[in-house]
Design a protein around this nucleic acid. Structure first.
Lengths: 163, 163
DNA sequence: TATTGTTATACTCTATAACTATA
DNA sequence: TATAGTTATAGAGTATAACAATA
C-alpha cells in the first residue's frame, strides 16, 4: 500500500504558534484597557438583573450622597460632559429613578434628586456591587488592592477636564 | 436702616462644597475607568499627528510581529470580535497601512500584512508612544510601574473571551 | 456541520457646535 | 457677556443575528 500524501502533522495536533504581541503587554495603556474590559464585563454580568451600567451607578451614588446637586456639578464630578449627561439623566428620569426639580433662586438650573425607586435600586445594587468588587479584590489581596488604588490615583491625577 | 436680606456670604466667596462621591473612589472599576480615561486622552493628544487610535496601534503592532496572521487570530489576540474587526481593517487598508492577501491553502481566510507605509507609520509612532508611556511611568516610578503591571495583569486574567 | 469573513443593525460612549432662557 | 441646560450630530466601540463561501 502506497501513501500518496503525508501531512507534516495530523490536523488535530497543529499547535498554531502563539500571537506575538510585541511591546503591547508592557504598555500601561494596553494593560489598563484589558483590565478595565474584564472588570466592566463582570460588572455588567453581576448587575444585569437591575439593568444598570457603571455610569448610571455612579450618577445614582452621587445623587444619593448629594441630594439637590445641580446637573453641571454632577457631570463635572464624574468626568462626563454636560452635553452627554442629558441623555443619561433622561434615561434615569424615564425609569423613575431620579428627578429634576426647579431651583428657586436660579431659573436656569435644575436640582437633581433620587426618587424612592432610585433609592431602592441603589439598595438592591449594593450587595451586587460588593460581590463584584470582592471578586477582583480577592485576586489582588488586601495589600495588592490598596497598592493598585494608589497607583491608579496617580495615573488619573491632573489628567482630564471634560469641560 | 433695615436690612431686608442678608446673603450668608458674598457671591464671589461662596466655596461650593465638594461633591461627595461616596464609595466610588474606593471601587476598583471606578478608579480603573478614571485612570484609563486619563491615559487614553494623553495617547490621543500625543499621537494626533499620525491620526492613530490605541486600537489601530495595537493592530499594526500585531501585524508587524506576526506577518501573514489570519484576521480571526489578530482579533482574538486583541480581544476584538471578528465582526468588529472588519471595519478596523477596512480603515487601515483604505489608508494603505495594511493589506489582506489570499491564503493558498484556505480560500476562506485572508492573511494580513503591513504595507511599507504601515511600517513607516509604526516607526514614526514609536517615539511618540514612548514619550506617552514615559509620562505615566514617571508618575509611578520604576517600582510602582512594575507593581501596577502585575496587578493589572491579575485583574485581566481569565476575564474575557470575545467569541 | 463548522469555520472565515462579512453585512446589517443597534446601542452606548464620547466629542463639537450651536441654540434657549436665563443671570 | 457668561452660565445652565439642551438639541443636533458625528465618530468610535461594542453587541447580536444572519449570510456566503469554503472546509
Amino acid at each position: 500500500m502506497m501513501i500518496l500524501t503525508v501531512p507534516s502533522a495530523p490536523a488535530a495536533a497543529e499547535p498554531e504558534p502563539p500571537v506575538d504581541l510585541g511591546a503591547l503587554p508592557g504598555l500601561i495603556g494596553y494593560a489598563l484597557r484589558r483590565a478595565q474590559l474584564a472588570v466592566a464585563q463582570d460588572f455588567h454580568r453581576r448587575v444585569a438583573a437591575e439593568d444598570i451600567r457603571p455610569g448610571q451607578h455612579s450618577v445614582l451614588t452621587v445623587l444619593q450622597n448629594n441630594p439637590g446637586l445641580r446637573a453641571a456639578r454632577v457631570a463635572q464630578a464624574l468626568g462626563i460632559k454636560r452635553t452627554n449627561f442629558v441623555p443619561v439623566l433622561d434615561g434615569l428620569e424615564a425609569r423613575g429613578l431620579a428627578e429634576r426639580r426647579r431651583v428657586p433662586g436660579d431659573r436656569r438650573a435644575s436640582a437633581l434628586f433620587l426618587t424612592e425607586a432610585g433609592k431602592a435600586v441603589l439598595a438592591r445594587l449594593a450587595p451586587l456591587v460588593a460581590e463584584h468588587e470582592a471578586r477582583f479584590a480577592g485576586r489582588l489581596g488586601p495589600d495588592g488592592r490598596s497598592q493598585l488604588m494608589g497607583l491608579l490615583h496617580r495615573l488619573g491625577e491632573a489628567g482630564f477636564d471634560p469641560a
